[in-house]
Amino acid sequence: MAQKLKETILNPILKGNPITVLVLGICSSLAVTVQLKGALVMALSVIAVTGLSSLVCSLLRNTIPMRVRIIVQLVVVAMMVILVDQILKAGESTYAIDKQLSVYIGLIITNCIVMGRIEAFALGNKPIPSLLDGLANGTGYGLILIVVAFLRELLGSGTLFGLQVLPASYIPNNLVILPPFALILLGCIIWAHRAFDKELQEK
């Protein structure tokens, strides 16, 4: 049991990482990785939403009518997202960050990780493992987000969390800031991940 629980938590972070292995949740992720701060808030929001929605859907799993299951799941996820959005907007220190994430907070709803975990795990498992599975997948996702944001902010602006870290003589690379580079960077991260873990390579 303990072994299984450990696997539930560790698997999504390494071997079954939602972004680099399952290729889920790319949509809302890449555009918020220009700065580390935004990526961190996005990661935390997604962790909260995946965990809580998995928990709620798991609690409801025996009552949900099969035919409207997608709609019910989406309503639960949307509710969680709106809650996160409203809370960020109301906090004095988080208000500015919420403004920066604008439309992407809403897109957590359609973040495939959330729906994917509900379908694949929460509907067939007890609430506590579902909560952990949701949290772990959110973390696996957040981790990649933060790695990408770290590299993009460092190379694209010479800063980390808005503080200058590279010497002033470094000329920021504008290409790194533009959307396409996030994809190339992600491709390289996948490359590194699979070079390290040969089992994941595709034929």
């Binding site: 009518p65 035919r67 409207v68 019910v72 309503v75 639960v76 509710m79």
Partner: peptide, 21 residues
């Protein structure tokens, strides 16, 4: 849980609860 009336009642209930919250 697959009958028509159950589906309708269930969906309505979820929507009302969520909207109120």
């Amino acid at each position: 849980t697959n009958s028509n009336s159950y589906t309708v009642v269930y969906t309505t209930l979820i929507v009302v609860v969520v909207a109120a919250l």
